[in-house]
Design a protein around this nucleic acid. Sequence first.
DNA 1: AAATCACCCAACCGCCCGGCG
DNA 2: CCGCCGGGCGGTTGGGTGATT
Length: 246
Amino acid sequence: MEFQEGINCSSFTEVQGEEMDLRRGPWTVEEDLVLMNYITAHGEGRWNSLARCAGLRRTGKSCRLRWLNYLRPDVRRGNITPEEQLLILELHSRWGNRWSKIAQHLPGRTDNEIKNYWRTRVQKHAKQLKCDVDSKKFKDVMRYLWVPRLVERIRAAGGASVPGWAEEPALGAAKRMSPSDSFGMQLSPPDPVSDGYEDGGVAKRAEDDRDWSESVYDDLALPDLDQSTWTDSLWTLEDIWLQEQF
DNA sequence: AAATCACCCAACCGCCCGGCG
DNA sequence: CCGCCGGGCGGTTGGGTGATT
């Protein structure tokens, strides 16, 4: 891959651009280097001309995506921490699928990563519950089972698995979302030992994804109640709790 | 050991919006 | 006002990989 940085971009005509067959698919190490070097030297923006001037046979969009989602120096990768999960749950409940907006509150995480997390994990749990992620049923399970459990995991881990950042905002979110410990407990949460959360935070996805939802949901005994009444009462209690807090 | 399955995630696609001539 | 273009966003897809049979 030749590096075209020296070429005057204005002389790099549209015709040449059109004649170049654009590459697609996975990025090579060489392409990554070219892109990083070019952005280091010239900054980002103007992605189409950037792609041309850097000598990359990629669309501007492709370059932008590669930079933002992968090459940017401050990009964090790896498992989503419980703190981050908590924030995602809370912010999604507030803003819906506004992934970029949500990502702004999770430093180093990209909208793409959060979106992937939501689709692969959260929606899967909803599927296991045979309901929609937007349904009351799922929101209740999230709020009264998932969130308290995440809070517990964060506390058990000392609440600082992401030094300097996640501790406060995530627990703040937890406080806003979780009515109270005692309230959570009244709902007879499942035995943590039986559903894969006893490992003290050594997050193995298989354990996270173990089929907890059915047994968990059975514990709630929802089918024995009129569900709308049940959920309505939960929301009411939540409102009361919020009023008490603020 | 091989085949199949399930999952994850990087990358692409299509749409939309705002700026500009 | 209109059309074009760049950029951003959410949705979707397909390859890679690890788990399971």
